[in-house]
Amino acid sequence: MLYNALFNLGILAAVWGALALAPSPLLNSPSVPFGVRVPPDKANAPEVAAQRRRYGALLLAATAAVAVLALVACAALDSLVVGAVGGSLLLTVVGVALWIRAHRAVADAKEQGGWYEQTRQGAVTDTSLRTDPVRFPWPWAIPAFAIVAVSALVGAVVYPDLPAEIALPQKSFSGTVYQTYPTTFWTAFALVLAQILVTASMAGTVAGILRARADLDVSRPRTSAARYRRYLTSMSRSLLGMAALLNLMLLGLSGMLWSDNRSQSLMALVVGVPVLAVLGIIAHLVLRVGPGGSRLPADITEPDSGLVPRDDDRFWHGAGMIYVNTDDPAITVPRRVGFGWTVNLGNLRFLVVTAVLVAVAMGVGVVVAVTM
């Protein structure tokens, strides 16, 4: 019982930490508090600071209440994960609601205070990101591709000797259970196919962000452009490194699958080490690189242009989380809330490609279901 309670509290503490950091400059540009674009000199305005304090206080109170409910559910149902899963979902919903409330409050303060009325707005681009783009770091992709090749080779060797049925792990409220399936190509090589999907997704993501529209600082465009190039290099290498680590985890799980090894300690090692390494990469990006490369050292300096970023709130919906601009040819743009990039849901090319991929995925799913 004590272990279950500590497990639930640990999960909720992790969720609280992630939600508490959401409005922090660690994950967001200071000029977009709670997803609202404000002039740089208003990033720490009293109205913004008050919303940060209120968001943090209400989130802490909500976490305490949800923790009590989770512990009660854990004790009543005698389950390790029911309280944690339900509590995490509930706390996430509360956190999103608090974020939306703070977003509206900051937007109202911005409008009522006329924060943009006396500013010189501008936008800047660096054409060299198209004429001389940051190159795809192919050497950093070699480990991910090599692990996929090793997995496929080992699988091809052991496949003829596999038993008629193979056990695949399934997650349930009572923990990890195993379900047996007839041994087919799809069941035996399911995790190898997952490796291919992970590698292709990461490579595609890197290719996309290298062509994404840059969100440069109009007050110091040359400095910002140089820093952004270093940011792209750090992000692309990190993503490919994560792909290699995830593929390594899937290789270990494939080995356990093919050998019918159900050791929980071995599974914890196979999964835990790569996941911890991925978390280490993410921590490096957050603490040492920063949103848009804001923590990277600047190679050059230049005087302040006196311009501020244009007020583009009309293109951002869902409390600053969803970008829709039919006039913007870019498919991928920097996220306003959180770290990394998001897609332009107003871009027709993206919508067409997404529809095609969904149709292909549904077709593959039908084929797999029929053949299993």
Rank of each mutant, 00 (worst) to 15 (best):
G155A: 12
L58A: 11
V366E: 11
A18T: 09
S79A: 12
A76S: 11
A298E: 12
G204E: 07
L193C: 10
S174F: 08
Y116Q: 06
V367W: 14
M372Q: 15
L162M: 10
A243R: 04
D304H: 06
V154T: 13
V367L: 14
T184Q: 10
L345C: 07
T199S: 14
I331H: 00
A45D: 08
L210N: 06
N247V: 15
Q195P: 06
L239D: 04
W99G: 08
V368R: 09
A156H: 03
R120T: 00
P133S: 07
L58C: 12
G280V: 07
G318L: 08
L77I: 09
L216M: 09
M235S: 09
L357S: 14
D126L: 02
T199H: 07
A105L: 08
R229M: 05
S128N: 04
P274C: 12
E111H: 07
G122E: 06
V366D: 13
R335N: 05
L153P: 00
R53M: 05
G306P: 07
L9Q: 12
E302Y: 08
F136N: 01
L98Y: 10
V81L: 14
V177N: 01
L129A: 04
S236G: 13
N247E: 15
S128G: 02
A355N: 10
G17M: 13
S254R: 10
P46D: 04
A361P: 07
V93K: 05
S128R: 05
L91C: 02
V148D: 07
